[in-house]
Design a protein around this nucleic acid. Structure first.
Lengths: 335, 335
DNA sequence: TTGTAGGCGTTATCAC
DNA sequence: GTGATAACGCCTACAA
């Protein structure tokens, strides 16, 4: 069974290949009679257009690349999922680019854009700086999620980590806490730094002293939360409340607390960050700042597709709001 | 800045396009002198081969499609991740096909294979029957993960759900339990049925009666585990142990138990299925049957790539072993 | 409305 | 080892 091409269909339907092509690209320009003949021939021959040829001719692939730090993290994969849904709707394929946070891999993937393997790229929480991204994409369609584009003009959608962290800390202060600790993410990460700043600002605004011994640097993962939690809770002046820069670290603290017999939220109130799936299922359920993951994905996809199709974008700088999800771990007002 | 093509490079290097092409595809056939000239010209012009043209000419895309029920589930996404790593190593792109378990979407995605958008497909736990898959792929490269290919000859890699469920149940029996309940997955799912069979077989083999009131059908998700758990634990003849067909349902039972003041594992021993991330983090940590997710992915990818490259496959029917991971939730031997 | 024909940029098959 | 040149299958002026 040889490959059947447009020529075969044309012959069978007694028309030219142009007419067959038009049936796909612009059916209205074909008379009903011929259209039906063509459709019939397509059916009978089980013809499938060859997308490779079409791609070359149109110089596009109908696929986009999503560069993502790690698909095992539900924050990232939720965004990815939203992107895929939006893309599917418009007939675009999604190519997966998992980087494990290696800048080198990000660069590699960006290559696919230059080689025209994809029509556009969405970068989730990239390691590369916007300026470098700009340099290696040369004006081709890119959207950044989770960071600003600085002065490159690259469209982006992000949340405000400074503000969200401020809100989380403020919530604990309003519950009556005065000795509030903080577990940060790695300091080479801008998101970590922004979140730490938000904590500091909230404390300062309420005239609360930040005790340096209550502020530690973790790595976002559960193990560091556990280790720091053990240290923090065993010390003489343990805090009465804690903000962590990720839910995983908060859950690590939960485990440490359980081990030390520290009851949560009575003896220690906690607010995490991210609203991963586990946050609602752990014991006690974790209060947390939730990013609007679906919005992130949907907005980014829409932006990118507009870029690809040369449609105007209303707003190239989108800011979405995180939401404080109050569960049991932060307790009720202190008396 | 116009697009630069192979012709431009050829002109600049004073060679034919054929030679330029060879520098990419078969460098050994080009004299060192000319090769260097070409390489230099490529550098100077910042030439990037146009993959679209290459694809058309070679009639391949260097990308594979992974059809996956849901990327938010860590069992699936771990496999996807392993596939992506293996594919990347061999220069293949991974296209994501999330279906939310809709057979209709699976069919749609399979279309991409016929249209040559991808060189091959890996289907993770497909809804479609092997016979239907065979029909719509017509001998093009496909690999199934998690089900057998029945008599279609489609290569597959799967685990033995019957046996694994047998092992899980047997473990509880050996700990001294005699009244063992079971929460099954949806019965229209073959995996659910196999797991249920394994439970029955283990009971039978040990001359234990299966009490029908202790066997319930859930939907794999946490909510159903919770609901069934409440019912089961409140009843007069609650079991002393429980096997669930998924970790999520087991965690639902954990929540129900906490609410009812039933202590785990003392009053109820539990073994789950899947070893999702939460299993090791919940309280108490969950004993569970773990699928070898990395193996699944790696094997499937290697099979598919062999298929694509027309290399012989050692074994088209691969069986991998699940592993019982013993944690606290199943307790110690009864006295 | 329909057909003709010239690319799209690469690779592969020939000769030389 | 190297260079012409003909595909690969489709799309789209342009002409009719």
């Amino acid at each position: 069974m040889r490959k059947v091409t447009m020529g075969d269909v044309a012959k069978k339907a007694n028309v030219s290949v142009a007419t067959v092509s038009r049936v796909y690209t612009d059916p209205d320009k074909v008379s009903v009679a011929k259209r039906d003949k063509v459709l019939l021939a397509i059916q009978e021959l089980h013809y499938q257009p060859n997308v490779l040829a079409r791609n070359l001719r149109r110089m596009q692939t109908n696929s986009i690349l999503v560069i993502i730090p790690n698909i095992l993290n539900t924050v990232f994969s939720s965004i990815l999922n939203a992107i895929q849904m939006a893309a599917l709707e418009k007939g675009y394929q999604v190519i997966l680019g998992s980087t494990n946070r290696l800048p080198e891999l990000e660069r590699n993937y960006l290559h696919l854009l230059q080689q025209r393997v994809v029509d556009g790229v969405i970068m989730l929480f990239p390691q590369l700086k916007p300026s470098e991204i700009q340099k290696s994409t040369k004006g081709r369609p890119v959207v950044i999620v989770g960071h600003e584009g600085s002065d490159t003009g690259i469209p982006y959608v992000t949340n405000d980590n400074f503000h969200s962290s401020y809100v989380a800390t403020k919530h604990l202060i309003q519950l009556g806490h005065r000795s509030i600790g903080y577990i940060a993410g790695p300091m080479d990460n801008i998101i970590s730094r922004e979140r730490l700043r938000g904590y500091h600002y909230a404390m300062e605004q309420s005239d609360l002293e930040v005790n340096k011994e209550l502020v530690h640097e973790g790595d976002f993962y559960i193990g560091s939360g556990y280790a720091i939690g053990l240290k923090l809770l065993a010390s003489a002046n343990a805090p009465s409340a804690l903000v962590t820069a990720s839910d995983e670290m908060a859950i690590g603290v939960l485990q440490a607390a359980k081990e030390l017999g520290v009851s949560i939220p009575e003896q220690l109130a906690i607010v995490g960050f991210d609203d991963i799936k586990m946050a609602s299922l752990c014991e006690p359920a974790l209060s947390t700042m939730a990013q609007p993951k679906e919005d992130f994905g949907k907005i980014a996809a829409d932006m990118l597709l507009s870029l690809i199709m040369d449609q105007p974008i209303e707003n190239r700088q989108m800011l979405v709001q995180d939401q404080l999800v109050v569960r049991r771990s932060c307790g009720s007002p202190r008396t």
